[in-house]
Design a protein around this nucleic acid. Sequence first.
DNA 1: CAGAAAAAGTAAATCGATTTATTCATGTGA
DNA 2: TCACATGAATAAATCGATTTACTTTTTCTG
Lengths: 361, 361
Amino acid sequence: MANGPSSSRATIHDVAARAGVSAATVSKVLRGVESVKPDNVERVRQAVADLNYRLDPLAAGLRQERRRIIGAVVPDLESEFFGAFATALEQAAEDAGYNVIIASSRESEEREADLVARMDDWRVAGTVLAPVRSERGAGAETLAGLGMTAVLVDRVSAGGAFDTVTADNFEASAHVAERLWAAGHRHVLLHGATTISKSVRTRVEGFTDRARTFEPAMIVDTLLSDDALDEQRPAIRAYLEKARGARTATAVFSLSQHSTLLVLSEMRRLGIACPQDMALVGFDDAEWMQTTWPSVSAVAQPVRTMARKAVSALLARVEGTPEFTAQHLEPCTFIIRESFGEPARQGAQGDPPARRRRPHT
Amino acid sequence: MANGPSSSRATIHDVAARAGVSAATVSKVLRGVESVKPDNVERVRQAVADLNYRLDPLAAGLRQERRRIIGAVVPDLESEFFGAFATALEQAAEDAGYNVIIASSRESEEREADLVARMDDWRVAGTVLAPVRSERGAGAETLAGLGMTAVLVDRVSAGGAFDTVTADNFEASAHVAERLWAAGHRHVLLHGATTISKSVRTRVEGFTDRARTFEPAMIVDTLLSDDALDEQRPAIRAYLEKARGARTATAVFSLSQHSTLLVLSEMRRLGIACPQDMALVGFDDAEWMQTTWPSVSAVAQPVRTMARKAVSALLARVEGTPEFTAQHLEPCTFIIRESFGEPARQGAQGDPPARRRRPHT
DNA sequence: CAGAAAAAGTAAATCGATTTATTCATGTGA
DNA sequence: TCACATGAATAAATCGATTTACTTTTTCTG
């Protein structure tokens, strides 16, 4: 019951025999090569249908230098962001006639390097790597060492040896600074749940950079840690407790989804009213953020666009060799929800909270 | 810059030449076959290291009947549940020395069948299918038609032609009914965002089945729909509005994560106090449920266990042929959070709300 | 120590496609 | 009509491993 019904599958030779042509001709028809007489094309088609023939993509790839496979390595598959990214990547690659092999490095650089090498073993045509750390991490190093064709995505900064696709973390964060300033916030806490991620670092830079341009300069506290999530709670709690009613931050900009979850839960635990006592804006939107209380204002990244661009940049390199590396910076969207409000303690002067999306570039 | 450094990779013949043995011997060493003299093993090892040789898994698999690949088809990759499932699956398979190819059917049965056939093209050793619908869906049909080795997971019921691994949806839902009853709820609404999923149907059955055993029988309303998520809001709103203060349900049991999100957001929009006016329990736990207000009580599924069992059941079938199909039912965990409370309108008699996990079997 | 049995090693076939080099018609121009 | 280009088809080589069938070497046994 678990074994094949008609023993073994038909091969290209079976098809050739039935169509009365050679295997080479069948191969041509299968790959849509022009130089086959219409008559023969038709007979091959018929034989394929009769025998229920399906090409073995692995055998097909063996002879070719590069196989029609794209490798994808992402830091995790459990987050909405990379889940959506992987889905979009799969779709884009299939549209181009490629298969995708998705693997999760589980936030381990060592595993990342191993997976990249494994992709090379599979002789993939190209690899999309969303590194754990940055374009200098173990995975990228392996890519370079093996001379692989690749595109780096998400936690990278422009300018390296590879094509890159990233959300415009810098500008989006700067925009958040502006919006908070306009809403009357003069003192903001930046919280990040990791420091190794290049994106998180860029977000800090974008925010502080813009914060410095205000008159008077916005005060920016930062609370960055690489500890396990639960171990970060005390520090957040301590900060928020100190902040209560005192002359400190009136808003938090959380630099990742996990960070947002952490900050929000500690606010609720301490009974801090959001946004009255403390506003909250998160980087990276998630479905649940619409439903929390308060609903969370967040920067949404253009995941699908990024995935599409990654594939097209990769294929451009696979199918030809562009002279220069391309660096794609995709604009984000700022979503205003309840947690984005004016500070109660100081005069307000910004936009009133509202529910809408607006691109900011 | 994008091309290989040392032209082409070493093949098994290069290794053989350098070690002064035949390719067959190298192959034996690589696969850990015993009958090779220690001396030769050592020389092969050395040659492999010297040449930086890595085996091509595709070429290796070509000659074999079944390749060391496991195919996995899941309905989506964007949800926490299947993301975690895919991750755990990958881990378990790799521990057994198999590669995994993950693909998302994007909740389409047509695509599901196509992906299954594609897995067969890849000559996978076995396939783990988490169907869109059930064990009778298009994917399972294709699996059977092609005589593939497979294990069905999640949205299936026991008893079909394939091995299955599922959460014990029936018992877990019955347990929720019991807990709600014990807490004083006499009238509950079941909300599901889809009807085609076998799991959701089983959850309804488990709940209503147990609800009938109470004295007097618990009143169970159901609101099931296959509409797009946003189109379901009006119906929920209408129900909740009617329920307000009136003699209707005092609790909602939402049958999926999406459903929970939907119900919770409509409750908040209408200003319904949870759990005082209306308690909420969801099936399928998510990280964000800790952070909402109120935090959401939920049934947590043992994802990792399910993934591990799926792989071991599959490999048992790949590497031998068990006589009977095995049906695994994994117990769930009921997590009590704020949204699980006693009804305000009637006398209470159950457990006080508390934060803890307890297995229920 | 011869001879048989067991162990170790290898040349060659194989897997299922693609690609190359070659053959075989057919058409064209001088 | 011959030489030559062109178009279509194919036999055979190839990709990089595994597996088979056979040979050689080693180890026992009487």
